[in-house]
Amino acid sequence: MAASALTLVCAVAAGVAGSAAGTELTRGPSTAELHAAAEREIAGRWRNWPAGRVFPATLPYSAEQGGRERAGRIGISPHTSCEDAVDAAAAKALRQAGCKGVLRATYIDALRGVLVTIGVAAFPDELSAVRAKSAFAGGGRPVPGLRPLAFPGTVADRFTADVRQSGSVRQAGPYLVLTTAGQVDGRPADAASEPRPAIFAFATEISERVLTRLSTPRMPDCTSREWQC
C-alpha cells in the first residue's frame, strides 16, 4: 500500500514537472527576451546588412542655399580593419574598446565640390562605443579622426589625409559614425583661404541618417530566421 502511494506521488510530481517544462517550451518570448533579441539584431547590422543598405547610393541633406539636395555615393571600401580606418592617435582607443570593424564609404555633395567619407565603427555594446568616442576630435576638427577613402580614377582620387578640413563623430547604441570632409580639388587644409564650415555641414547630416538607420530598434519577429529570441 505504501509503495503504491509513493508511486502515485512520484507520478503526480513528474506530471507537474512535465507540465511546467512543456509550458516553458511553448510560451512566447518575454519582454526581456524581446529586448535582448532587438539589441542583438542592432549589434549585427553592420555585418549582416548589405553594404548598400548601410551606405545608400544617395543620401538627402539640407542645402546651404535652402531646399533639399542629395549626396551621391562614389564607392564603398571592401576593408573593415579598425586600425587602418582611423588616425594612429585614435586606433588604440578603438582597439581597447573592442572595435569589431569599421565600414567606410565616400560621398560627394550635389554641387560636386566637397567629398566626405563616412565611417561606421561597430563595438560590442553601447558603453564600449561611448568610451571610444572620446578619442576623436570635437568641434568640427578632423584630426584625430577618420581617414579619408580615395578612389583612383574618380573625382575622389585626391582625397588624402592632407585634404581633410572638417570632421565629426556621433554615437548611438553600439556604433560610432564618423565623418571626414575636404574639397574635390585636393587643396590641402592649410591652403584654404579661410574656414568655410557651412560647406561641410551636410557631412554630419548625412552621417546621422546612416547612424539612425543602424541604431533604431525594430520589433523582433521570433518566427523569422533573422531573429534569435
Rank of each mutant, 00 (worst) to 15 (best):
C99P: 04
I118S: 04
G75P: 00
Y107P: 01
A93L: 11
G113R: 12
P144W: 01
I108H: 11
R112V: 12
T117E: 00
A85R: 01
A132M: 02
A97N: 06
Q96F: 11
G75W: 06
G67H: 03
G98V: 10
D157T: 12
L146C: 02
P148I: 03
H79E: 14
F136K: 00
H79D: 13
K100N: 04
V155R: 09
V114T: 14
T80A: 04
V116Y: 09
S77I: 01
S77E: 09
H79T: 13
V102Y: 06
V86P: 07
P78Y: 06
A85C: 02
D84R: 13
D157W: 15
K100T: 12
T160M: 13
T106F: 06
A89M: 07
V102M: 10
G101T: 08
G119C: 00
A137S: 14
Q96H: 14
A122K: 01
V155E: 12
G139Q: 06
R68N: 12
T117W: 09
A90C: 08
L149V: 06
G140M: 02
L146K: 04
V86F: 05
A85H: 07
V130N: 08
K133D: 00
L146E: 04
A91V: 11
G140C: 04
V120C: 06
F151D: 05
A71P: 03
I76E: 11
G75N: 08
L146H: 03
F136W: 01
P148C: 13
P152T: 12
H79A: 10
C99K: 10
R70Y: 14
V86C: 05
A85G: 00
D84F: 03
K133V: 02
R141T: 11
G72T: 12
A105M: 07
A121K: 08
A122F: 14
T154S: 15
S77C: 00
A105I: 02
A150H: 14
K92I: 10
G113C: 11
R68I: 15
C99N: 06
S81K: 03
A97F: 10
V86H: 05
D84C: 04
R141I: 06
T154P: 01
K100C: 09
F136Y: 03
D84N: 15
R158I: 05
G67W: 07
S134P: 02
A90H: 01
A150L: 04
P78I: 03
A150T: 15
G140R: 00
P142C: 01
G113D: 06
V120Q: 07
Q96A: 15
A91P: 10
R147A: 05
D125S: 14
P148W: 06
V114S: 13
L94G: 14
L149D: 01
G113P: 04
A110F: 11
G153I: 07
K133F: 01
G138C: 05
V120F: 04
E126T: 15
G101E: 04
S128F: 03
A93R: 03
R147V: 00
L103W: 07
A93D: 08
A105P: 03
A93P: 11
V130D: 07
T160R: 12
G113Y: 03
V116P: 01
V143N: 12
L103P: 05
T117D: 06
K92A: 15
F159Y: 01
F123L: 15
I118N: 00
E69V: 11
A93K: 02
L94E: 12
V116Q: 09
E69D: 13
R131Q: 11
